[in-house]
Simulated scan of single mutants.
Amino acid sequence: MSQARFDQAAADVKNLSKKPSDDELLQLYGLFKQATIGDNNTTRPGMLDLKGKAKWDAWDKNKGKGKEVAQQEYVAFVQTLQAK
């Protein structure tokens, strides 16, 4: 997986003809963060920050995945969304 393919998928996601669902957006977010930063080692947001908690959980679900694997899954998921 090349960095260029990952970068292209990240750009393509902004131009999808159909807006992804909230769950799809969270999946994209989690894979993107894992691919670019690695494992989530931040503190989980508090109870009142629902959006922050959802994003944190989406990222944390990918814990342990290597950068390469996260990039591959991200690109594949973007391709799935493009096909819709």
Rank of each mutant, 00 (worst) to 15 (best):
A70H: 09
K67H: 09
A54D: 13
D57R: 02
A54V: 10
P45N: 05
K63D: 13
A58R: 00
G38H: 12
Q34M: 13
W56N: 08
E73D: 11
A70W: 13
N40D: 09
K51A: 14
I37N: 05
D39F: 11
W59C: 15
D49P: 01
L48H: 07
A58D: 04
Q71G: 06
I37K: 11
W59E: 13
K63N: 15
W56H: 15
Q34N: 05
W59I: 14
D49T: 03
A58C: 04
W56R: 03
F32T: 07
Q72C: 03
K65N: 12
W56L: 09
A70E: 07
K61M: 13
K33N: 11
F32A: 13
P45D: 01
D49Q: 08
K61R: 14
K61N: 15
K51W: 08
P45R: 04
L50Q: 13
Q71M: 15
R44V: 01
P45G: 04
D57P: 05
E68W: 04
V69I: 10
K33R: 15
T43P: 06
R44E: 02
T36N: 04
N62E: 11
K61C: 11
G66R: 03
I37Q: 07
K55L: 11
I37E: 09
G66Q: 07
A70R: 06
W59F: 14
W59R: 12
Q72T: 12
A70M: 06
E73A: 02
K67L: 07
I37A: 03
D49M: 07
V69A: 14
D49G: 04
L48P: 00
G64M: 07
D60Y: 14
A54R: 12
Q71W: 14
D57G: 04
A58Q: 01
K55D: 01
W59N: 14
K63L: 13
K65W: 09
G46P: 03
W56G: 06
E68K: 08
F32H: 12
K63H: 12
D60G: 00
F32V: 04
A70D: 06
T36V: 11
L31S: 02
E73N: 01
M47H: 03
L31G: 02
V69G: 00
A58G: 06
Q72M: 12
E73F: 01
T42W: 01
D60C: 10
Y29N: 05
